[in-house]
Design a protein around this nucleic acid. Structure first.
Lengths: 164, 164
DNA sequence: AGCAGAGTTGTTATATGATAACAGGTCATT
DNA sequence: AATGACCTGTTATCATATAACAACTCTGCT
């Protein structure tokens, strides 16, 4: 069961095993709730996506998968799992990187806003009402009805600024 | 010389030739100002990007280019021109579409915010201080220093909503 | 005019990201 | 155990983007 403690700041050193186990148990719950199958493959792909807080390319996942198994997995294997995970809101796709990252709060459907560090490549997911509100206001002004937002902010995370 | 009249709303029917000639003369000015060469190829690619208000893929441009010339142009030809145009702020790349669109106001460096219609595929560029402010505020909260923003909003434009 | 050097374009090959189509396997329900 | 829905494997292919090097062209200089 997902505990109710807040997840650690991904920028800070932390016990990452906790992030992974949290993500996996949240995924179990979400899939059970929605009546969809959290198969071994899907679980494994989700685990790989969660191996760090850096967005991971589909072919990186594919390689790890192939190495683990001995035999060569094919792209559709990974893309189908990723499609499923996205549909369930368990991972997000980062369009500007063609990469995927685990969602820290899949219980409720949303699209995140991402801070992406150009140096260490960590991506931090936010859900900033202020950003969504500003977008909604702009859309309204133009008579535009929003169905999805892509907000990806590149720069330097606090850690990397401090290091420089 | 760029006139000072405001450009038409791209959603509305309008004399698109005006958009194109405006864009080309603005480009001439920007390149002259910055001391870079606005070569025939670059101009042609910019014209193709401006053929409509819909973001255009690099390979679409490539095809048109090849057809016009008889001989087969190669991808780097187009990508180099696009890189140049992006560097000068004359076109923007839409990450969520892997496509490119002309910038209506290249005189000042900026990154746009885009409203992208899922039905008619038009992309409307905004520069919403409210969105940038909300992003800046969120970034500050997280100690993150922003170097670029990708804001791409998908949905239905006013025209397409009315038609539906 | 002729030359030198920077910048631009051509060309070939290849990397990287994603999907179509169909065959075969697995699982829950009956 | 049979059925049917769903999931996975496999092959082929499409779509997007870049590396590396050769050839050309423009500009400034003598």
């Amino acid at each position: 069961m997902s505990d109710s403690t807040t997840l650690p700041d991904p920028q800070q050193p932390h016990n990452h095993a906790h992030c992974v186990s949290h993500a996996l148990s949240a995924a179990e719950q979400v899939c059970a709730r929605d009546g969809v199958r959290f198969t071994a493959l899907r679980k494994r792909v989700l685990e790989l996506v969660w191996q760090s807080h850096k967005p991971l390319g589909a072919y990186d996942i594919l390689e790890t998968l192939s190495r683990d198994d001995g035999r060569r997995a094919a792209p559709p294997t990974v893309y189908r799992a990723l499609d499923f995970l996205q549909e369930q809101g368990l991972v997000h796709r980062i369009a500007s990187l063609n990469a995927f990252i685990g969602c820290p709060s899949p219980e409720h459907r949303h699209q995140g806003h991402f801070l992406i560090c150009l140096n260490c490549h960590i991506a931090i997911e936010l859900e900033e009402a202020g950003i969504s509100d500003a977008i909604a206001a702009a859309a309204t002004t133009h008579g535009f009805s929003v169905s999805s937002e892509t907000v990806e902010i590149s720069g330097l995370c606090a850690q990397c600024q401090a290091a420089a």
